[in-house]
Write a protein that binds this DNA or RNA. Sequence first.
DNA 1: GCAAAAATGATAGTAATACTATTATATTAG
DNA 2: CTAATATAATAGTATTACTATCATTTTTGC
Lengths: 231, 231
Amino acid sequence: MKELLPKISLKVNEHVYLKDPQSSELGRRILQGSIDLLEEVGLEAFTFRKLAHEISSTEASVYRYFESKHKLLLYLTSWYWAWLEYRLIFSLINVESPEDRLGRALKVLTEVVEEDSDFLFINEIKLQHIIVAESSKAYLTRDVDEENKFGIFAGYKKIVQRVSDVILEINPKYKYPHMLISTAIEGAHQQRYFAEHLPRLTDHIKGEDSVVEFYRGLVFRAIECFPKRDK
Amino acid sequence: MKELLPKISLKVNEHVYLKDPQSSELGRRILQGSIDLLEEVGLEAFTFRKLAHEISSTEASVYRYFESKHKLLLYLTSWYWAWLEYRLIFSLINVESPEDRLGRALKVLTEVVEEDSDFLFINEIKLQHIIVAESSKAYLTRDVDEENKFGIFAGYKKIVQRVSDVILEINPKYKYPHMLISTAIEGAHQQRYFAEHLPRLTDHIKGEDSVVEFYRGLVFRAIECFPKRDK
DNA sequence: GCAAAAATGATAGTAATACTATTATATTAG
DNA sequence: CTAATATAATAGTATTACTATCATTTTTGC
């Protein structure tokens, strides 16, 4: 995907920021700096104070962009879903067979990001690490319902819906397409986290990306279709 | 299981508490009160101050039992794993066929708790709500590795290992038994959370417990065995 | 190129949180 | 019944998560 398109920017729900961080230099430094800092210290130890220091700005200035660190986390996760959707669309373009489409979609949803390219101030590799460890905290709060009303999780739902539709093309009778896809997405994150920190909760087979292989097998078997492997 | 056994207590790793809360009246009030309060306000808004107030004690006294609210959360999750293991053992007693054993195990891992019975000061129904919404926060921290060294997640691993072994009895060649089980356990929590807060990420079919049905199908298909339904 | 507007920086302040410490009082165990 | 232990009452500290104010810089519209 690298360099195929002019640099574009991804839309994030307006309710997560006070001022669009993609619209100014400081805003972009906030995004970049917060990705660096979050990856380094984790959400719990992350503060706007430290962030401001890291980017040579002030706490008050950061607060002009984001109401709280929770909103900033929502921003990053929303951005990630938008980015995933963008990659999903690309990887499905011109692919006809629904089985192929599903296989490719699953790969995008479960694989590890290895190049950081399309977006100037977002390091996608670091962002994925953050997503793996922190994204569930974005919705596991007392504010979910309220935030959900404002469409903050729409990007996530859209992806799940999109891939569910592919499943239903393959097997219109399959009863749990949304569960299956959200299980694969969240599960892939968890399994990567487990591999790093709690390896007895997962499996790793040398020479393959076991997370990708596992969820591929899981999904295709669940919907009762045995796919032709792409080489 | 109700009343079959004399009241017993479950062992929790020593490193999560300063003083065993099951050993004193105040300790038990702390457990009971924290389950009530956590369910009511969620982990973020939960403080030892509020807890102390709720149980008519003091902050300082609570701190004599638990170093921090994170440790208290670890206590509750560890207790939950111990309790799940206990229920797992019961549900597999005298069941010979490995397919049956797996079916029963999955049911225990994914079903909703409906009675609160065996343990005096732990409300298992409320505890399960807390687990659904908060348990992943117990390991998604910077302290995981350190805590893992002290065996704090051993209870969880033990369950995963136990059920993985059943899978391998059925299909010794299956490559991802741990992934499969941890996916089912965590996934079941997530899907219940989604059902309540983000329903477009899941599926619900009237007249069945879709979470249980979904993971049952998923697991049996993944390992290539088509189970006889129990009734 | 300049005035007005907007963005940022510098600094300060507040309420709440997450603890620690001290001493007094109650409870319990030998 | 005394000594040890547990709990309560109270106070205090450092940090966090903000909000407010005002000065300074940058941007923009003409």
